[in-house]
Simulated assay, not measured.
Amino acid sequence: MRPMLAVTADHVPRGEAWVHEVKWDGMRVLADVHDGHLTLRSRTERDVTTAYPELAGLADLYDDLLLDGEVVALRDGVPSFAALADRMHVSSARRADQLAAAAPVTFMAFDLLRVLGQDITAQPWSARRALLEQLDIDTARWQVPPVFDDGEQLLAATAEQGLEGIVSKRRDAPYVAARRSPDWQKMPHRRTTSVVVGGWRPETSGADRLGAVLVGVPGPEGLHFAGRVGSGLGGRAGDRLRELLDPLATAGSPFAEELPRLDARGARWVTPRVVVDVASLGHTDGGRLRQPAFQRVRPDLDPEDLDA
């Protein structure tokens, strides 16, 4: 099962029909408890249970439970995606135990989809939220974060506190799995876009170091070119990304269209598997990112997940 997703909005919806939550800068996870066994699945349905041993106690809460939420790594009270990235693909139980002891994560449960064998996704958000609160599951490692009536005030507060943004939800909305619904609207403070890397270019100095990446967006005809991103790739960020791209080297361009000569010059092509976030000033009329800057690798996303 894949989770319900929000659309990006340019303003906070007003009125009593809406409720507002903090947008956590973490990894979306469905926590499935059944007969004393816990399974944690990512947004792409990958089993990530081993990576987060500090959440094993969720299995002891109820005999049957399905929670939607985010795993976050808090640093000085603020979620840090960079800190969480080191945990996302850990498959060694021993290594996961070491990381959990040094820097444990917290599961922010914001929706309840099944309880005691009953699927409640068809019920409105307000009913699901009431049941979630009645579970009384708040601890140091998992909690049910609060909701707010005043979305504009919450947006201002999250900006001041350095949080990612907010999500607004219709109180009467059912939970529609694997769909992006206007009943959920997100307003991040950082305008970011997730794209797929299809190639990279070395630095213009002649050094064999990554200087820019060529990125695209999956579509029905393949990977559509979205631009060249060089800003933000200096130092260790570029080196780390290069380490991910080198094993994916391929002979030909993975893009659906022929790239402009200026962008393709000296390009090293890769199989499009690595997803990254870039910040930009929007898009040109031709669909290219305006003044894009690299933000981070998204190990929690697959390219197929963007074609939705």
Rank of each mutant, 00 (worst) to 15 (best):
R290A: 09
K169T: 06
W200A: 07
F148G: 03
E21T: 12
A82K: 13
H37P: 00
D307L: 10
G266L: 09
L74Y: 01
Q118H: 14
G211W: 00
L306W: 00
R75Y: 03
D25H: 12
P13F: 06
A83Y: 00
A127L: 15
A56P: 00
G266V: 10
V297D: 01
G222N: 02
Q161H: 14
D76L: 07
D119F: 05
L74E: 05
E152C: 09
W18A: 08
L223K: 02
R46V: 13
V196Q: 03
A93H: 03
L113P: 01
A157R: 14
R28M: 09
A73C: 10
M187D: 06
Q123G: 06
R242I: 08
R273E: 12
V12G: 05
P188E: 06
Q134N: 11
A96E: 00
V229C: 07
S126I: 11
G165A: 13
G57I: 05
Y175G: 06
I137P: 02
D138H: 04
T39G: 00
G57M: 01
P182A: 14
R288N: 12
A93S: 12
D25W: 07
A82P: 01
G15H: 05
R75I: 12
P202D: 14
D10W: 06
E21K: 06
G15M: 02
H283F: 15
A130Y: 00
L132V: 00
D86I: 10
D302E: 11
E221C: 08
T271Y: 03
V217D: 07
P13E: 04
R95L: 14
V215P: 02
